[in-house]
Computed example of a mutant assay.
Amino acid sequence: MRIGVIGAGAIGGTIAALLDRAGHDVAITARGEQLETIRASGLRVSGGWGEHTARPRASAVLDVPPELAFVCTKAQDAAGAITANAEWLAGIPVVIVQNGLDGVRIAEELLPGSPIVGAIAVYAASYLRAGLIDVTAAGPTIIGTNDPTRRDIAAHVSSTLGAAMPTQLVSDFRGAQWSKLIVNQVNAMPAITGLSAQVTLVHPVLGRIVTGSMREAVRIGFATGVRFASLQGLSQPLLRAFAMAPISIGRVLPRVMASRMGDTPNPGSTLQSIRRGQPTEIDYLNGAVVRAARASGLTAPINETLTELVHRVEKSGDFLEVEEVAAVFRRIN
């Protein structure tokens, strides 16, 4: 099958390389040094699913018509990437592999004639350098849609990708998005402080703030009718108990999440973006919680403040000390 993969970062690069290994005719879009390296020496993936060097057709935008396309850019780049490739995406199934809650909706607005399916990467991969991606934690790609008319297309996508890497087909994609949004709550504090996710989750001050932001997000999800999917150790009953218990008990969940990350410091994707001098996805992570709250007449002050602090670090390049962070949150409590 001719498959287009838009975005050759850690997630898109992994998907492209493994689809190539499975025998598909893959075309990938990339920029700068990544594009030059793929053209010259291919795209190598290593780690959790073994090693493979793919040699996909690589260009700044798609230049051949695919039969199926995956959009794997950062959330803030998706609209531009879809618009730039719209000529080849019209009328074919398009899979949006992104964090946050807005990716499918944005794609539907930009590609009204294309059946859009959502996807969530549960595996972890690192962009080590141009042309080299390491899968650090194997896990499935969740595939789904909340449109009953697209269930067969979602199943076809899951089957196609599933021949190359693990997939899981879900009937309630919104619930899966919200569960991943709770997992992604670990990203903001490392980006603000420069500390690893493990350190921030167990820290007596920072961990309590992250616990508060997670509980706030869970409560907003429940208030807006979300049924959380079972994902990465989270489930509807667990999150309900987490949101309702005293915060001293709630602190257990972030500590467990930290322990599951192992001993290698995990910076989180948001801190990685800051270190590379790139815009972060924070408006589609904690910011998505804020927008969901406002749409229902609610507030999310912890998530709103975390979003603001990440933007502050993006602009200044200076991480905040623990006491600075604590002082900010004392003012909103």
Rank of each mutant, 00 (worst) to 15 (best):
118 G>Y: 02
100 G>S: 12
19 L>W: 11
93 P>C: 08
191 A>V: 03
75 A>C: 02
94 V>I: 04
273 S>M: 12
124 A>T: 14
97 V>D: 11
233 G>E: 09
50 G>N: 09
288 A>T: 03
111 L>M: 12
73 T>P: 06
192 I>K: 05
176 A>C: 10
160 T>D: 02
292 A>R: 15
52 H>L: 02
200 T>Y: 08
168 Q>N: 10
173 F>K: 04
59 S>Y: 07
328 V>H: 04
72 C>H: 00
131 G>T: 07
266 N>C: 12
211 T>R: 03
32 G>C: 08
303 N>F: 03
255 R>A: 14
230 S>H: 01
243 A>K: 07
45 V>I: 13
25 D>I: 04
30 A>Q: 03
211 T>V: 11
55 R>N: 10
153 I>N: 04
262 G>T: 03
203 H>Q: 00
39 R>H: 02
266 N>G: 05
240 R>N: 11
274 I>L: 15
29 T>D: 06
149 T>S: 15
99 N>Q: 11
143 I>R: 05
249 I>Q: 12
181 L>K: 06
21 R>P: 01
128 L>M: 13
6 I>N: 06
190 P>Y: 10
127 Y>W: 14
264 T>D: 11
273 S>L: 04
33 E>W: 00
147 D>W: 01
237 P>F: 09
242 F>W: 05
184 N>S: 14
241 A>E: 10
229 A>F: 03
271 L>G: 08
290 V>L: 07
273 S>V: 01
249 I>L: 15
10 A>M: 03
36 E>T: 13
321 E>V: 07
265 P>S: 08
159 S>E: 15
274 I>H: 06
53 T>A: 05
202 V>S: 11
218 V>E: 00
270 T>H: 00
115 P>T: 05
2 R>Q: 13
129 R>A: 00
74 K>P: 00
253 L>V: 10
320 L>Q: 04
127 Y>A: 12
25 D>E: 15
25 D>Q: 14
273 S>F: 02
43 L>N: 00
181 L>P: 01
244 M>G: 05
332 I>D: 04
72 C>P: 09
297 G>C: 11
251 R>I: 12
82 I>V: 15
181 L>Q: 01
59 S>D: 13
18 L>P: 07
114 S>Q: 12
124 A>L: 09
160 T>I: 14
186 V>W: 06
18 L>H: 06
77 D>Y: 10
20 D>C: 03
47 G>M: 06
5 V>H: 01
95 V>K: 06
42 G>M: 05
333 N>W: 09
142 I>D: 01
230 S>W: 00
239 L>K: 08
136 T>Y: 04
258 A>I: 07
256 V>I: 15
163 A>T: 10
205 V>M: 09
54 A>H: 05
132 L>S: 08
256 V>P: 01
65 P>V: 12
297 G>E: 11
231 L>R: 05
332 I>C: 03
228 F>L: 09
91 G>T: 11
212 G>T: 00
307 T>F: 02
196 S>F: 01
305 T>M: 12
275 R>L: 15
167 T>P: 08
67 E>R: 14
279 P>Q: 11
165 M>I: 14
